[in-house]
Design a protein around this nucleic acid. Structure first.
Lengths: 340, 340
DNA sequence: CGTGGATCTGAATACGTATGTATCAGAGCA
DNA sequence: TGCTCTGATACATACGTATTCAGATCCACG
């Protein structure tokens, strides 16, 4: 249906290879020939077939991005900068979702349709990374832990979560609770580790009944708040595994009539855009997700260019952003003193 | 590097075509042969190259989705169901962004790398649709107006916006303002039309100084509120071109100390998830974006299967969702009477 | 024992591009 | 005039799969 380089060749009175060379700016094409070819191409609305080019060049200039759930407001913060980075580098973005056991198969990723892959979502026991490694398919972990034999761009989650622990202790809280992310995700696990470690350092600990692990989702955060507030001694401060969970908690608080921060301090992690909205004012741990994503893109393209280079693990140090969802513990005996 | 069907053929002691047939379940392959081929394929970790298959079959099983801005919280509501729909139908999703004049070129979309395209963002004067039509590339408009010669899945924006007009009048508001979307987008234009038409019907009109048109973004909504409140007679009710604009307005209201809905009624359009959060409680026009997206996907796949079928324009009728951001006009003389 | 048909497999080819190699014309030089 | 060299183009082929068509094998049946 669409014109091919052969059609252009016939019209311009040259051979097919000459068309290819002329349109790609190869120097060994005479100016007059090039002109004729370009004119013929224009006349036929010719666009070189990506299908043919890809087979011939053995490069697709396509990157697969695996996210867990597009409706989760966290992922656009990674997807958007990744897409833009790859676009300006001449690569296209193919989207994959991996929701509970039902992600892309290794065959889908290894069929030669992708030059590289960004894994944003892999659970720690996902078979995908090992399978990709085994087949020498370039990939990078983004916001996920990796062993030494893969590239990765991550936030120092242990450090960031410890900042929150320090903050809550400093604010005078004793009944401290947590809605951690899933242990099967390195972000969930590491943030739990860092938070617990910080409390220990201060001689505190997390009561078992005040700590839960839930998926990184709004609705699970919402539900978790109800669970924790039903304890005999409910928490006065809550660390959430990420901002999306925290937003769920804040939402539940409105429903349950819990005042933030007077009745409950809530702290998140990631600092997604919504956290900074005036309604929300979520105190959280800021990660530069744009930079994190671009770093991952950069690592991946370098790996594609040189499959044998050293593996790099880029770690970003996050910092606290104090907004309005935290407060000093209000002792029943003394007047409140809100801090921020 | 990776094994090809030729390698499998050699190992299994058959020809390459037999490998292709055996692995694709062609009936004319003897069971014993098939077994040998499958064994060889397994031994070599063979996965059929998508590059070769695509060239041979002249189908890519890839769909391009063009959105304007991934960071805009509206787009995930279309992207997620589209992706899922195409995935279950055996198609992959390639992402394109079209932000102010800098979208994908027609060459990028017409290079044979896509079986079809979903346009979610085209401005009314975009050259893309005409170019795609001229090249017989299947595409569908999603949430955007189209002329009769293209498929589209849209919401009845005129009708939906009129519902808001009716509501605001019924609530007794007289100083009614609007933060419309861009006129260059059919959604912006049609919602403005419907809203104005409704006010006219009730014998009202929109004061020029209380109507502005801004891009569909949080920050523009936020800024627009400041502009309108600075008028000599500020509005008591505000229609917003979509929920994202409305969220920006709500955010600005918090900053400016404007109480919603006591001081200002705010109504959005789309009913994205965030609108229903307890913090937000945005009164808005509900569109079933999931269904809209799936409809668009369905239309596109049907068009791909049969390029000559009649063009279909699927129109969905939206309805009001009353939450907490609207109220009856509070006359200075009478006590407030909140409605919802 | 030969023939027709059914069953399976291989050879050839198409898809559309890119590229290495060969060829050809013309120029420069002896 | 004949040789070499250069520049421009054509020829051949590779990329990896799917498919058409022809051929081979085997069996049943006359």
């Amino acid at each position: 249906m669409a014109a091919t380089s052969k059609d252009v060749a016939r019209l311009a009175g040259v051979s097919q290879p000459t068309v290819s060379r002329a349109l790609r700016g190869h120097p060994s094409v005479a100016p007059e020939t090039r002109r004729r070819v370009e004119e013929a191409a224009r006349a036929l609305d010719y666009v070189a077939s990506e299908r043919g080019r890809v087979l011939s060049l053995r490069k697709t200039h396509r990157i697969g991005i695996v996210v867990s759930d597009l409706t989760n407001p966290f992922y656009p913060h990674l997807l958007a900068p990744l897409h833009d980075y790859f676009k300006q580098a001449g690569f296209r973005t193919v989207l994959f979702t991996e929701q509970d056991e039902d992600g892309p198969t290794i065959e889908e990723l290894a069929d030669g349709s992708l030059d590289g892959i960004v894994l944003t979502t892999s659970l720690v026991d996902s078979p995908l990374p090992a399978a990709l490694m085994h087949r020498d398919i370039p990939f990078v972990f983004l916001n996920r832990e990796s062993d030494a034999t893969a590239d990765s761009a991550v936030v120092d989650n242990v450090y960031g979560a410890a900042l929150v622990g320090d903050l809550l202790v400093e604010l005078g809280h004793h009944r401290i609770g947590a809605v951690f992310g899933p242990r099967a995700a390195s972000t969930g696990r590491d943030r739990e580790t860092g938070f617990r470690r910080s409390l220990s350092k201060h001689g505190r600990s997390l009561a078992d009944e005040l700590a839960v692990s839930v998926p990184f989702s709004f609705s699970h955060g919402r539900a978790a708040l109800g669970t924790l507030l039903a304890r005999s001694e409910p928490p006065t401060a809550l660390f959430c595994g990420n901002d999306v969970i925290a937003l769920g908690v804040l939402d539940g608080a409105v429903e349950l009539g819990v005042r933030i921060p007077e009745d409950l301090t809530v702290v998140g992690f990631d600092d997604i855009t919504i956290a900074s909205w005036a309604h929300i004012g979520l105190t959280t741990v800021h990660c530069d997700l744009d930079r994190l994503a671009r770093t991952a893109g950069d690592l991946l393209l370098k790996r594609i260019a040189d499959p044998d280079r050293e593996h790099v693990r880029s770690i970003q140090r996050p910092h606290l952003v104090l907004r309005r969802s935290h407060a000093r513990l209000q002792l029943p005996s003394s007047p409140s003193k809100k801090e921020h």
